[in-house]
Computed example of a mutant assay.
Amino acid sequence: MSLSSHLQELRKKHQTLSDAVEAAHRSPGVDDLKIANLKKQKLRLKEEITRLTPQTVH
């Protein structure tokens, strides 16, 4: 798998988690711990994306 396709897959997973967090916030019966875990997963993906994304030097 190329870096580009790997990043694309990570971004897709990040968006899916983002959607899940939003849906959980709208659902009154969702446990706060579940939301916190979703947010942690989302943050880990964001950090991985940032780490793998080539940085431009100015």
Rank of each mutant, 00 (worst) to 15 (best):
T53E: 11
E48I: 14
E48V: 12
R51K: 14
L45W: 08
D32K: 11
E22Q: 13
L10N: 09
R51P: 04
E22C: 02
A24I: 06
T50E: 13
A20E: 10
V30E: 02
E9G: 05
H14Y: 13
Q8R: 12
R26G: 04
G29D: 12
S27G: 09
A20S: 11
Q15I: 01
I49M: 05
H6F: 11
T56Q: 12
L10P: 12
K46P: 00
Q15Y: 01
S27H: 08
E9K: 13
D32P: 10
S5A: 09
H58S: 07
I35L: 06
I35W: 05
H58Q: 08
M1T: 13
D31I: 03
E9I: 02
I35D: 04
E48R: 15
K39T: 07
L3G: 08
V57R: 15
L38A: 07
V30P: 04
H14K: 10
H6V: 14
E47Q: 15
T50N: 13
L38W: 11
M1S: 14
S4Y: 11
L52Y: 12
T16A: 11
S27M: 07
Q55K: 15
Q15D: 02
R26W: 00
K12C: 05
K46F: 08
R26Y: 01
V21G: 03
G29M: 08
D32G: 06
D19P: 02
I35A: 02
L33W: 00
T16R: 14
T53P: 04
K13Y: 09
P54I: 06
K34M: 04
S5R: 09
S18Y: 03
H25W: 10
K12T: 10
A36H: 13
H58P: 15
S2C: 13
E22S: 07
S2H: 06
T56R: 14
R51M: 05
K39E: 13
H6Y: 14
A24G: 07
N37F: 06
E47G: 12
R11P: 00
V57A: 12
S4H: 07
L10I: 08
L7F: 03
M1E: 14
E9N: 14
T16P: 00
L38C: 05
E9H: 11
I49R: 05
K34D: 05
A23W: 01
S27Q: 12
K39D: 02
L52E: 12
H6R: 15
E9D: 15
R44A: 15
K46V: 02
K34N: 00
S2R: 06
D31C: 09
K40P: 00
K34L: 06
S18F: 06
S18Q: 04
V30S: 00
A36N: 12
N37S: 07
T56N: 03
R44P: 00
L17N: 10
S4W: 08
Q15P: 00
